[in-house]
Amino acid sequence: MDTGTHVVMGVALGGLATLDPIVSGSPTMTQAVMLGAIIGSQAPDFDTVLKLKNNATYLRHHRGVTHSIPAWFIWPTLITIVLTLTIPNVNVLHLWLWTFLAVFLHVFVDIFNAYGTKAFAPIKDKWIALGVINIFDIFIFITHIIGIILWRFGTDPGWTFLAMYAVITCYYIWRVRAQRAVYRYVKSLHPDATHIFTSPTYRWNSWHIVVRTKDEMYVAKMKNGTLEYFETYPFETIPDLQIIKDARKDPNLSAFLSFSPAYRWEVTEESHGYTVKFVDLRYRSKGHYPFIAIVRLNSEHEILSSYTGWIFNNETLKRKLEVAI
């Protein structure tokens, strides 16, 4: 989910924690648990600082180790240690448990969007992305805001947020059922599909779809129960070409391939030598595929420049590649 949603989730968990008599019975504990819940709801995304280094490092590691099983326990432990050193007379166990819940809930909800996480690493070192909830879901966000407003106007925070989470749980169940219905319908049209990728949009009745068979890849949109096809491409595995082998040594392309399960590639010969380009088919926007990886090499296959990330026009891409030189 986005940062704003994780913030309001932290506040909501801090309110929910007042159902715990150890928390509600002490103003100090109430304050400490609220801080623990808010910080814990953000902690798994502290790896966002990797963007300061470069996109390749961020793409390869974001939602990786910081969302893994060991991190479920490391984050609440670190946060609890810091809070107990700064706030005296707190119940360490209950503070840790509520902070752990905040961290775990962050990781859990991230599984449901199309980006996903490595939530079960190191036991299962692969991305888990269910493609059910948009990275920013207006219903989930607004529901939290309503709960916070009701708390502000005097309702009991514990019962208010317990009821709110009951509603959100029903919402998740509905979205899972809706996604499964889309999947089954697409599968009925493509029984030979080896992979079907669904990406939710801001609209509940609209889904981005990529279908992969042994021979072809289909890019489509499901809206109001109707499947609209945009493009069809031959499914081509990455060939054993020396130019691509050399391009894959570049960290930007390597990071892209570690993340993207549905892509197209092309090699073009240009004045500087060669350009190797990969595009992620899951993120079609206004007729374009803005999430890309591109590597420029000279005639001796030496890497001149590269980039991976979101590009919405050629001028931006040109500037990125010039900066990379």
Rank of each mutant, 00 (worst) to 15 (best):
P21F: 09
T80N: 03
I209R: 06
E228N: 12
Q179G: 15
W127P: 04
P191H: 03
H195S: 09
F197I: 14
R284I: 14
I140E: 01
V167M: 14
N134Y: 14
E322H: 12
T169W: 09
E300P: 03
W72Q: 06
K187W: 12
P70H: 07
I69Q: 02
S260P: 08
F312I: 15
G64Y: 08
M1L: 12
W207G: 02
V132I: 15
T66K: 08
E269A: 12
L83G: 01
H94I: 15
E300I: 13
W127A: 05
W98M: 02
R248S: 10
F259H: 04
F235Y: 13
Y229G: 10
N252M: 10
G36P: 06
R284G: 08
T308G: 06
I39E: 00
G15I: 02
K214E: 00
P122C: 05
S68N: 05
F108L: 14
M217Q: 08
E302N: 15
I138E: 00
P70F: 05
I244T: 12
T213R: 08
F235G: 01
V210C: 06
F112P: 05
G14S: 04
Q179F: 11
H61A: 09
I133E: 03
K245T: 12
I79C: 03
G64N: 09
G309N: 04
H195G: 00
I123F: 08
I168W: 00
D280I: 07
L317D: 01
G309I: 03
I140M: 13
T28D: 00
S299N: 14
K320C: 09
N205Q: 11
N113A: 06
N298T: 11
I140N: 07
W310D: 10
N54Q: 09
Y115C: 07
G147I: 02
T160Y: 02
H190Y: 15
D215P: 07
K245M: 11
N89G: 09
P70E: 01
D110T: 06
W310V: 15
I311C: 07
I123A: 08
T48P: 07
W310A: 13
Y115D: 01
P76K: 09
S271M: 14
I173N: 00
M9S: 02
M29A: 03
K249T: 12
G131R: 07
I148Y: 03
A293F: 04
I69H: 02
F153K: 02
I238S: 03
T316N: 11
R60N: 10
K51A: 08
S285Q: 15
L297G: 03
G15A: 04
Y202R: 14
M1P: 08
A71R: 04
E315Q: 14
I69A: 03
L93R: 13
P290L: 04
V167A: 11
F256A: 03
T226H: 12
S26K: 06
F73G: 12
L13Y: 00
I209P: 00
D250N: 15
H208L: 10
P44F: 08
M29G: 03
Q42A: 06
T48L: 14
K214L: 11
Y218E: 00
A121D: 03
A17C: 10
N298Y: 05
T48F: 14
H61M: 13
H106I: 02
F256N: 01
W72K: 09
P21K: 14
